[in-house]
């Protein structure tokens, strides 16, 4: 596995990332106790990343919701989580999974515009590196030369930036992650088991 193909990353950026915050809210109502929405989201991305083809998906948003829900159901059956009635959930999906609307592109575009708000919130150096990389199109090496930094420092800024953008963007607001940070503290002691 060499990470994602560029075309798949673009597809995810166009059809999944813009809906992530909404999907999270939607999932929260349908995820049984003991199952973390953040985990479901990550597994959903994994599933979409490993699909052989995505071109046949005519309604990506509905497909996204379906994929996420199938993971919820799968995990639910798997055990520890409370058993849920899959028939009822499927019905809910039919009613709730948003049909692709004509203005979905517009909506997605507006969501993308929020990426820039998020970039605005990055720390100074991090933002500078990001802008040079993604806006001016310089390579990490060229950025390192221009800013007189080591390449690994530039890489760290990029990594830090991605992390922060995901926190801000994916969760649909500037708030700090709630579910996963809570889990972090819970999980700490268990790690040693």
């Amino acid at each position: 596995m060499r990470g994602l193909s560029n075309s798949r990353a673009v597809w995810l950026a166009q059809h999944v990332l813009p809906h992530e915050a909404d999907l999270r809210r939607w999932l929260r109502l349908r995820t049984p106790a003991g199952l973390d929405v953040d985990d479901v989201i990550q597994e959903t991305y994994a599933k979409l990343a490993t699909l052989a083809e995505v071109d046949h998906i005519a309604a990506p948003k509905a497909y996204l919701y379906q994929t996420a829900l199938s993971i919820v159901l799968q995990e639910g059956r798997r055990s520890r989580a409370k058993r849920i009635d899959s028939d009822i959930e499927i019905e809910t999906l039919d009613a709730a999974a948003p049909e692709p609307l004509p203005d979905q592109q517009v909506e997605a575009r507006q969501e993308l515009a929020r990426v820039f708000d998020a970039i605005d919130g990055l720390p100074e150096k991090c933002r500078e590196v990001f802008v040079l990389r993604k806006v001016e199109g310089l390579s990490q090496r060229e950025i390192a030369e221009r800013l007189n930094l080591s390449e690994s420092t530039v890489e760290k800024h990029i990594g830090r930036g991605i992390r922060m953008l995901i926190e801000i963007f994916g969760r649909g607001g500037r708030s700090t992650p709630s579910a996963s940070s809570r889990k972090e503290t819970d999980g700490q002691s268990d790690d040693e088991v």
């Binding site: 990353a9 673009v10 999944v16 990332l17 953008l165």
Partner: peptide
């Protein structure tokens, strides 16, 4: 499996920009 998902999401984030 979540790691691949998280990586895909991070790369999608970069692509989005």
């Amino acid at each position: 499996v979540r790691r691949l998902g998280a990586l895909a999401r991070a790369q999608a984030m970069l692509a989005a920009i």
